[in-house]
Design a protein around this nucleic acid. Structure first.
Lengths: 309, 309
DNA sequence: CGGGGCTCATAACCCCAGCTTATGTCCTCA
DNA sequence: TGAGGACATAAGCTGGGGTTATGAGCCCCG
């Protein structure tokens, strides 16, 4: 009952239907019939009927109106179907990523990417690539900028993606996007309610939750704060973006993260962005390849999908 | 093999681990130990170990390094964990929505909302509200503007959300957001490759995939096109946003939809936005309540979460 | 009007994925 | 050297979800 509690009372998966049920519901919505949906998913009609029924029981809401000449979604069914679609689409991104991670050596396109890009952008690109060029096999290797450069130079990757200010030796590339670092706090933190932006000097003198020294994010931050009293002050030093986010959400203090990394959290108000004045916290995201002509074939296709908007 | 094929060869759910496994993986990442993660989710340690192992088998990738003093994620594990988090977060939104849909009559806050808002915005708000005010019971009733107004006036709802140009009789409210309608086509359509924006007259004279007459989207479009040769021309008239999107994705023709509705599709390049010149396709999203003072208590809390940015 | 051809539901059976408990091994630390 | 934590292995049970077979409404058409 105390408001500051972690409050994890729940095995979420017990209250939410599984992916198969959601796929089935989407198929029913699209095809207008349990039987046809069942056939499309390769199960028997009674199985489909039962699955939908148990989903309705679990949710406590009627989803489809069954009639002797087909099934239509109820109003609630339309909502549940749309919410399900979100989950299924996230699952498609997962699948595209996982498939690339499994990474057959004979893939038509071998990609090497920095963690941030592999985490937040690449799965979406892969889904789009799959839609545009079905059957293109892509493999993914994630690592820091140095590892990406190495893979490209020794021929074990065809196309790379890196973030950071400098362009690695021996590579050509293009900027595909600009990333902004944002200062975030838990909603309870005083900075979350501030009217006036936080100044650069104040930011430089406030202990922050940060990635360890040497990370791309940290480098950009240190460079930006150098004119205002030296390097960023660490309150906590953690080794992964996820850990940093978790600490920030739990209210341990303010943090600085890529806007790519905090999109979801900001949307759900688990984190609040804090305006900052007088510091430019931007960095380029680049597609890179060994010095020479730009990639052709599937690499070129993927490259075409990476531009913002 | 033909590129235009529907190409649904797959029961996605067979290739993607289930939610329980993903929750478990997130817990392992956070807690650094299979045993502790198992305890948190209320299962035995061997169950957790087996689950992770079968997820690794399914994905063909090692996710955690097990050692006699704990478990750490591998590089691939970090990626998979992050991709899983996306899905779990979508599932949280689903859960929040479903819970509201189940709608106990004794809920502290009874919300009535138009379909578009209930589909695309409300679940996120409910997740945020839950984070901010744990335990607030919310019920949801979805319908068109008239139904929302009725619910508010007869006292069966406390707070409403509607889209559209006019403010319903007998209600007070505030604009919480502006929605833009966008013209979209499948990537293969000629408009997707156009350099010059489509003109208003051209839009008015092109048959479009549309919601049925009387829908909010249709009204805005008709009003905007009135000066340029009358009402919008229907190529197909469908009864749900989902059906319209599906038709547009399949390449049946251009369509006009809320940018809320097409965000995912545009991100994954299943749909391409087409620039339009000379038409203002905007509408207001409003929070509404019976004439009188603005809501207090949980209604006020929710209202505070609905402002953009 | 009577018979396909849809729809969905019910019934009876079956199987295996995944859980539990009990125990073993390995490492670390006091 | 012994206690404690973390993971693995083994054996046994259970039930959710699948299957086939069949029945019952509704529609249309000859």
């Amino acid at each position: 009952m105390s408001p500051g509690e972690p409050s994890l009372p729940s095995p979420l998966s017990h209250r939410v239907p599984d992916l198969a049920a959601m796929e089935l519901l989407l198929a029913v919505a699209r095809l207008g019939s349990l039987g046809r949906a069942a056939k499309e998913l390769g199960v028997s009609q009674p199985a489909a009927s039962g699955r939908i029924r148990s989903m309705e029981r679990q949710l406590g809401v009627t989803l489809v109106e069954r009639s002797p000449r087909g099934s239509r979604l109820t109003e609630a069914g339309v909502l549940v179907t749309d919410w399900s679609r979100r989950i299924v689409e996230a699952a498609e991104a997962f699948d595209a990523g996982a498939r690339a991670l499994r990474g057959q050596r004979d893939s038509r396109l071998r990609v090497a990417a920095s963690m941030t890009i592999a985490e937040y952008l690449l799965p979406g690109w892969l889904v789009a690539l799959q839609a545009e060029r079905p059957g293109t096999a892509v493999s993914l290797q994630a690592g820091n900028s140095a590892a990406v450069a190495r893979s490209l130079l020794d021929g074990s990757a065809d196309l790379g993606f890196v973030e950071g200010t400098a362009m690695p030796e021996g590579l050509d590339g293009v900027v595909i996007r600009r990333d902004r670092l944002v200062v975030v706090t838990a909603p309870g933190h005083p900075w979350a309610r501030r009217r006036r932006p936080v100044g650069a000097a104040e930011l430089a003198s406030t202990p922050l939750i940060l990635r360890e020294e040497g990370s791309g994010t940290r480098q950009v931050l240190d460079a930006a704060l150098a004119p205002y009293g030296g390097l960023a002050l660490p309150l906590l030093e953690l080794s992964s973006t996820t850990a940093v986010k978790a600490a920030a959400v739990s209210g341990a203090g303010p943090s600085v993260l890529s806007e790519l990394a905090v999109g979801e959290e900001v949307g759900a108000r688990r984190l609040v962005p804090v305006e900052v004045d007088g510091v430019e916290l931007r960095r380029d995201l680049r597609a890179v390849w060994p010095v020479g002509p730009a990639p052709v074939g599937p690499g070129r296709d993927l490259l075409g999908l990476t531009r913002e908007r």
